[in-house]
Design a binder for these strands. Structure first.
Length: 257
DNA sequence: CTTAATGTTCCCCA
DNA sequence: TTGGGGAACATTAA
């Protein structure tokens, strides 16, 4: 569920309810989602700031830092009541948050400091930066966009939407993009992610923000899961292939190798 | 019953 | 060394 726009929307809807609050009690209900025991003592710590790094929702505490990676079906929800898929609950001096995750691909970690950035955040790319990053890259564009050590925050939905916007084929060889096409891709990354955040993310199956509201960017998807439907730009049928083991949707006429 | 699903990681091979 | 394929993880829905 959560790529950068969803993580950003969750962080924004969480922040006003969590920042400045003190953790009264913490409950860890899954040893898959929280690994390691004994469970850390969180009671008494204050949540200073709520933000995001790539796809990870980060709560900075007065001591340490909670990092929530939502996997495929993770949700961070305001309010305490435990449901069948609740994996952790933080009770606060005012209110509560819980981490629900059906498939348990999500992870909750307690770090000493905010996560070290391995690659640049997709929204922090500065103009011209991408061309340099593509230099010498042997592989295809789509696997590269999905590689969080290359850029952080892009997942399967937005990779397809970005490549369509930039009119680039998912299997195009990264190193062979000229500076102009690299800049096209850079613009597409910025535009698609910014528009998706403005729409509150994409609710394609599970995703809801911290208040339980669905996003609306799925209504603006141009190719993702649009197999067989006409390309909004040229009318050709959208095609589905598999790249990097992920369903990949593109327009065979607009996006050439 | 089979397939696919918003993700990551680890092993294997080219 | 780089990178892609495949499997694995766990669960639901079509």
């Amino acid at each position: 569920m959560p790529e950068l726009p969803e993580a950003e929307t969750i962080a924004r809807t969480l922040a006003p309810h969590l920042e400045g609050r003190c953790i009264v009690a913490a409950l860890f209900l899954s040893e898959r989602v929280y690994r390691g025991n004994p469970a850390p003592e969180l009671a008494g710590r204050t949540i200073v700031r709520v933000g995001r790094h790539g796809k990870t929702v980060v709560c900075e505490l007065d001591r340490g830092c909670l990092a929530f990676h939502l996997g495929m079906t993770g949700q961070l929800l305001l309010g305490g009541g435990a449901g069948p898929h609740t994996r952790a609950i933080l009770s606060l001096d005012d209110g509560a948050v819980r981490f629900d995750d059906v498939r348990q691909f999500g992870r909750l970690r307690l770090l000493d400091a905010p996560p070290a950035r391995v690659g640049p955040d997709a929204l922090a790319l500065v103009p011209g930066q991408l061309a340099g990053m593509l230099h010498g890259r042997r592989g295809a564009l789509k696997p590269l966009l999905l590689n969080q050590e290359f850029v952080r925050g892009i997942g399967n939905i937005y990779a397809d939407e970005i490549l369509f916007r930039a009119r680039l084929h998912p299997r195009a060889v990264a190193a062979r993009l000229g500076a102009a096409r690299a800049e096209q891709m850079e613009r597409a990354i910025h535009e698609v992610l910014t528009e998706a955040i403005a729409a509150g993310g994409s609710s394609v199956s599970d995703y809801v923000d911290a208040e339980g509201r669905r996003g609306s960017f799925q209504l603006l998807h141009r190719v993702y899961r649009k197999t067989g439907q006409p390309c909004p730009s040229c009318g050709a049928a959208i095609r589905r292939i598999v790249v990097a083991q992920r369903g990949t949707h593109y327009c065979p006429r607009c996006q050439r190798v």
